[in-house]
Amino acid sequence: MTEYLDPTDSVAVPRKTAPRPASLDGKVVTLLDISKAQGNHLLDRLEELLRERATPKAIIRKKKPTFARPAPDVLRQEIVGATDVVVEGLAD
């Protein structure tokens, strides 16, 4: 049988998710708005709920310039350097 060359390319590398803290108490939580309309309302309410029901050390709000691209490297590094966990939304 004739050989056909592969038109695809896999870039998958085995990854593991990060270890989770036991709770959000004393943790820095970053709420990342991906800049889709309505996402700010979701994150506003999540911020209120976090303050009511958990005791995070701080809540940081960040926003991607556009939902249509991955976040710029500078923003990613800024977030990684300053937070314990991230909540991002809202993709629809």
Binding site: R15, K16, A18, P70, V85, V86, G89, L90
Partner: peptide
Amino acid sequence: MHDGVFFEDSGIPVATVISAEFT
């Protein structure tokens, strides 16, 4: 999704909120 995977790779737990159609 790329951002979320990046954060997890960097040791930061992420919750990505999406609408059902994008599962």
